[in-house]
Design a protein around this nucleic acid. Sequence first.
DNA 1: ATAGAGTACTGCAACTTGCAGTAAGCAGGT
DNA 2: ACCTGCTTACTGCAAGTTGCAGTACTCTAT
Lengths: 224, 224
Amino acid sequence: MPETMTTSTYAVLALLDLQPWSAYDLTQQAQRSLRYAWPRSERLLYSEPKKLVRLGYAATYTDTSSRRSRNVYEITEAGRDALRDWGDARTQAPQIEIEALLRLLFADHGSLEDVQRALDELEADIGEHHQAIVELMGSYLDGGHPFPQRTHLSVLFATFQIELFKAIEGWIDFARAEIDQWPTTEDLGMTERTEALTRLLAHDESAVDERRPASPQQPRPGSV
Amino acid sequence: MPETMTTSTYAVLALLDLQPWSAYDLTQQAQRSLRYAWPRSERLLYSEPKKLVRLGYAATYTDTSSRRSRNVYEITEAGRDALRDWGDARTQAPQIEIEALLRLLFADHGSLEDVQRALDELEADIGEHHQAIVELMGSYLDGGHPFPQRTHLSVLFATFQIELFKAIEGWIDFARAEIDQWPTTEDLGMTERTEALTRLLAHDESAVDERRPASPQQPRPGSV
DNA sequence: ATAGAGTACTGCAACTTGCAGTAAGCAGGT
DNA sequence: ACCTGCTTACTGCAAGTTGCAGTACTCTAT
């Protein structure tokens, strides 16, 4: 087995470069920071440091200072060297997976309530993350950052999340208002409203910023 | 092997509900629509319809009408029934993976150029998708939609992409301007500017909309 | 005539996830 | 003293998913 350095492996190595952690610590830390740019399972966070040890990029020892023993991982010199190579590779293209949008795209298989529920669920999921980031920023003002010299990075990173979440939440409101004008999910086709939106998008203009019309939409004759 | 219906399986089933497709057709179609909400590999798109056949949700026949033979998949009645169940399940939480942001979060391992390059790459990747969507909208105005009665869904879906891409591109400009004020990637910590940003974020306000100061930033004494 | 691009797939190793399972420490109540 | 439930601290395994190499046929341009 070749044991390649994946982005996840580099991410864990970068965390180990800050301080030694146990695998359990890594799962907790990943929840608070990595999750927003590189969500990975708890399971993987237990496996990656072991791989780093096999590659010689980390060393492990058993910490018995507390009641319960745990394996602590520490970066090695070779690990620090390897970390320097990370910057050389092209970053992977962003991957965005939103099942609620997929449901919207195929909304004509179900009822209006089904789409609305999908939007509610998306709002709830985004809202949770949104709130967590705002609280995290509050904690930076209060108790400070766990690695104070890195605050500038965490905060610039957080500005991204807030922009993203606000954009998504703004769109959800917009989409709800649009769907409220639909008599059904099916066969509306190129209504006047949809044509207006298409025109905006084809000129790369925001549709959300535009005011929407008050009148409910009906399928045009012959649009089916 | 239990053969579960994953979201990807439902997505392919939903496509088959529109019309019969060959696996190759599905890979092409997925590039144009699914990609933006549910990016999946070509490889999987060849496997999923086979699974649907094993489950009895699709039937397959060999099309020999053109020179080259190909396997075409068609949804069955059982498949249409199964598709109705999709709406019952809670949508999965959105997953957003952006390696460029991970590089930003660990920017202190490298040079200012490294972060800037990561942002350039992010901009290029987003720009590609952004342009593709705008062109797609143009084609809806020109030639029309391949499934005209579904235009309202595709277009509302596209409004999401445009909002998202605009938000990300706006943030990239903001982040570049911030980083231009940094003398180095490391050890800036809680500068005045970072504190101002943190305050904004802790009150859930957009940082991108705020004007930035003209003066370059320096680490505060004792911030390391 | 042949090179190259597009069409139409399959096999396989490796990456990743979710879940079940194991087990110890710790706080609170009875 | 005992039990319950929560947190800490992991491992094994089946199944989902990807990337890549490989196969092979068709069509177009030179």
